[in-house]
């Protein structure tokens, strides 16, 4: 132990390690520690070796399941024979064929709601000032070709409907109109709002109407609205096409005729 009066670094025969050790009092915890001993040389127990081999065997079976190294092992993990469970309380969905006039009218109702209701009102009676009524209109109940061209082209100029002259401007509705849409719309308005023509515009008739429209359109991107004079000169005929019995059963989804 160095003397407190002596400065350690001036004393030549001082053991630096000892002095360093002297600065640090051994803590109680360190003093009572055991030394780490040399490792034991017990032989590896046979049971351990056997257990390890069992583990290796299991690992081998796991590897064995992989089959050919790059093959798709998807089949291992897909449950075979998986089919979707039936929905509770229902059998398979069966398609119920319905009468063509109802199917078309339903389709037409949707299109009427989207395109026509804003002006001609949900009642189909117009607003009394600018937009003529469809119920009781001779144009709706009359020749189908004229009606189709009115719908597709729009009307401009004075037109006489239900005893009044209307002088408005109707925009054409041909944009995005398919054969089925037109057939449905015309069937709907001819059989609603008090109209009872009781007939069906078939898809064939509607496609003929669209062809006429395209001819009238010519090279322009859209056809101008039609005037009454033109309607009366060219279009006061029925659309060409096989007449369909309104009670024919069709598949409501595909609109195909279902054989009885």
């Amino acid at each position: 132990m160095s003397d407190n009066n002596q400065k350690p670094d001036l004393n030549e025969d001082l053991n630096v390690l000892d002095a360093h050790g002297n600065l640090v009092e051994a803590s109680a915890a360190s003093s009572r520690e055991n030394q780490l001993q040399e490792n034991g040389m017990e032989p590896v127990s046979l049971w351990i070796i056997l257990a390890c081999f069992a583990g290796v065997l299991v690992a081998g079976t796991v590897l064995g399941k992989s089959g050919v190294l790059s093959a798709n092992s998807y089949n291992e993990f897909v449950v075979s024979g998986y089919t979707q469970a039936e929905r509770p309380g229902g059998a398979e969905e069966v398609i119920v064929p319905a009468a063509i006039i109802d199917v078309f009218a339903k389709k037409g109702a949707k299109i009427y709601q989207a395109k026509c209701q804003g002006c001609h009102q949900p009642t189909g009676l117009g607003d009394g000032a600018n937009f003529p009524p469809l119920g009781g209109s001779e144009w709706v109940q009359g020749d189908t070709s004229a009606l189709a061209q009115i719908i597709l082209n729009g009307v401009i100029g004075p037109i006489k409907v239900a005893g009044r002259t209307w002088n408005g401007a109707m925009p054409g509705q041909a944009a995005g109109m398919t054969d089925e849409d037109l057939a449905g719309l015309m069937t709907y308005i001819r059989n609603s709002f008090g109209n009872e023509t009781g007939d069906v515009i078939s898809i064939e008739m509607a496609s003929n109407a669209l062809a006429d429209y395209k001819t009238r359109m010519g090279p322009a991107p859209v056809a101008p609205p039609i005037k009454v004079a033109e309607l009366e000169s060219k279009y006061m005929v029925s659309l060409k096409g096989a007449k369909l019995d309104p009670a024919t059963k069709v598949n409501p989804e595909t609109l195909e005729v279902v054989a009885e």
Binding site: A51, A59, L63, S66, G67, S70, S73
Partner: peptide
């Protein structure tokens, strides 16, 4: 993935038993 990858990993996972036990 190439099918050997998950299976090799699964085998290694099983073999982890050896160091754990020792």
């Amino acid at each position: 993935l190439p099918a050997f990858m998950p299976y090799v990993s699964a085998a290694a996972g099983v073999l982890f038993f050896i160091p754990a036990l020792t």
